Amino acid sequence: MTTATSITVRVPLAIRHRPGRKTVVSPMGDGVTPVTTRADPALVKALGRAFRYQRMLDEGRYASITEMATAEKIERGYLGNLLRLTLMAPDLVELVLDGRAADRVALPALLEPMPLAWAHQREHLLSDGPTRRAEPDVRIEA
């Protein structure tokens, strides 16, 4: 008669909580360093959708934002807010995608009306507090 035996396998891993997802980080051998990103998945997804919707408008797939919102089954106002993200300064988009703006910029702040001029956008989004300017601020509104 044989006795029951069991085998225990231990795999060293760490589960790290990231905004919106779980990441399994295994020990890396051979001197390879893991690629880490602090990019907020919600921001990245919103930017991706914004540029996709803008491309669809540019290609003439939809005649208007209202038509696109109906076809995509999303609110027209939200679609307009997303499309405003395509007018962000390229360096700000890069900061968001690289995860370097995660501590300072959140999706609700990006969906708010923001200045048209890229220099004013940088001041508006990256400053620690609201700044007062003597000249009137031109804002993008859908």
Rank of each mutant, 00 (worst) to 15 (best):
H120T: 04
Q54T: 05
V44L: 11
V9G: 10
L97F: 03
H17S: 12
L43W: 00
I65D: 01
A102Q: 15
R49K: 13
T3V: 13
R122M: 03
H120Q: 13
Y78W: 12
M68G: 06
Y53E: 08
R132M: 09
R104Q: 12
S6V: 15
R16A: 13
Y62I: 02
T37Q: 03
D91A: 12
D40H: 02
Q54S: 09
L110R: 00
M68L: 15
V9W: 13
V9D: 11
P41M: 10
G60R: 13
R122A: 08
A101D: 00
K22L: 05
M88Q: 05
V9R: 15
A106Y: 00
L82S: 01
S26L: 12
I74A: 06
I7D: 07
V138M: 05
R100G: 00
Y53K: 01
V32W: 12
M28P: 00
G20A: 09
K22F: 10
R104N: 06
I15S: 12
L47C: 02
R84E: 09
Y78G: 02
R100Y: 03
T70V: 15
L107R: 03
R10C: 10
S127N: 12
L107C: 02
V9A: 14
L95H: 05
V35D: 12
P34M: 07
A102M: 10
S64M: 08
M56P: 00
T5K: 14
R133I: 08
G48K: 11
V35K: 01
R100L: 05
T23F: 06
L125N: 01
D40Q: 02
G60V: 07
A4C: 10
A142L: 09
E135F: 06
L116S: 08
L57P: 03
G77C: 13
R38H: 05
P113K: 05
R52H: 10
T131F: 04
R122H: 11
A109H: 13
E135M: 04
K22N: 04
H120K: 13
R84M: 13
D91Q: 10
G77V: 14
M1A: 13
A50C: 09
I140W: 02
Y62A: 02
Y53S: 06
R55H: 14
P90M: 04
R100D: 00
R122I: 01
E135S: 08
H17T: 08
Q54I: 01
R52S: 11
